Amino acid sequence: MNIEQMLQQTNAIEAVSRELGVDPATAQAGATALLPSILSGFQNPVGAPEAQAAGAFPGLGGLGGLLGSIGGLGGGNLLDNVTSSEPTEVEKGNQILGQVFGSKDGSRAVAASAAAQSGVEPSLLKKMLPILAMIAAGYVMKQAGQGQGGLGGALGGILGGQPASDSGLASAPRSPAGSGSILDDLIGAAGKYLGR
C-alpha cells in the first residue's frame, strides 16, 4: 500500500479540494508533500501520552497512546467526516497533530518543508495538515478494523521481529518515509492494537 493508492481509494484529493476551495492539482501536490511526514509522525509521535498505551498495548509506547486517542476521536469515522459533504471537524485533526508533532511549531516546520518541496503556500499547507491527519488516521483504523493490514509481516517489520512485550517502537526499524510499507506498518500495528 502506498500514499497514492490511499489517496485514490479515499477520494481524499477531492475532499481536500472541496474543503479548502483549491484546485485538485494543488490539493494533490500538498497531500503528496505532507503525508510522508504525517505518517512518519504517527510511527513516533512526540506528544502522545505513553502512559495510556502501557496497559492497552505494551511495547508500542507513544503509538499506542496515539491509536487510543484516534479511537476516541472517532477512529475510522475520521475519514468519513472528511469525505462526507458536511464540513470537516478540523479540531479533531488538530488534536491528532498535537500528539504527532508535539506543538504548533512542529506542524509549522512540516508545512514549511512541504512548501519548499511542493511549491504550495505554507499557509495553505497548514490548513491541509489537520484534514490530511484525519484522512490518514481514519484510513489506518478502517483498514486495521477490516483485517487488511498484513498483520504478521507488518508487525514483524515494525517491532524488528521481536514480541511486542520485548521491543519498544522507538528502537524499531523504520520504513523510509516515502515507501508504501509505512502505511502497512501502521495498519498492522493498529490491527494489533484493536485486538485482531
Rank of each mutant, 00 (worst) to 15 (best):
L7C: 03
L63Q: 02
D23G: 05
G59K: 00
A172N: 06
Q148G: 06
T26L: 05
G145H: 04
V100I: 13
S179T: 09
D105C: 14
G157D: 06
G149A: 00
P58S: 10
Q117W: 01
A164Q: 03
G157K: 02
A31C: 05
A51E: 11
S118H: 10
A170F: 09
L20T: 09
A25P: 13
L125V: 14
L79Q: 00
S167D: 04
L125T: 11
Q8V: 06
N94A: 14
Q148N: 13
A133L: 07
G145A: 09
K192P: 01
L97P: 12
A25S: 13
Q52T: 11
G138C: 06
E19T: 13
G160W: 02
G156T: 05
L186R: 03
E14I: 00
L7H: 03
Y193K: 03
P49I: 09
I13N: 00
A177N: 13
G161A: 15
D80E: 10
S17I: 01
G75W: 10
G191K: 08
A136H: 07
N11E: 09
I70W: 06
L73P: 00
A53M: 06
G55T: 13
E86G: 02
E91I: 09
G102P: 07
M1W: 06
T26C: 01
K142F: 00
A33W: 11
P122Y: 12
T26R: 05
S107N: 08
T10C: 00
A12R: 00
T10E: 02
A136I: 10
M141K: 08
V16R: 01
A116Y: 02
G150D: 07
V82I: 11
N11R: 07
A31K: 08
L186V: 08
E50S: 14
I182T: 14
P58H: 15
I38D: 11
V46L: 10
K92N: 04
L63G: 04
N44H: 14
G55S: 14
A27L: 04
A56F: 05
G156H: 10
L159W: 00
E121I: 05
L132S: 09
P87K: 05
Q52G: 11
D184M: 08
I182P: 09
A54E: 15
S123N: 13
G168P: 04
K104V: 13
N11V: 02
I13A: 04
G180H: 12
T32M: 05
S118L: 13
G65K: 06
A33N: 15
S171C: 09
G195M: 04
P58L: 05
D105R: 15
Q8E: 07
T26H: 01
A25Q: 08
S85I: 08
A109Q: 15
D105A: 14
G59F: 04
M1F: 07
L60C: 04
L124I: 06
I13E: 01
I131C: 01
I131H: 00
A177L: 05
R174W: 05
L97R: 15
A31V: 05
P173D: 10
A114N: 10
A189H: 07
N94S: 09
T88Q: 11
P122H: 14
V100P: 07
M6E: 12
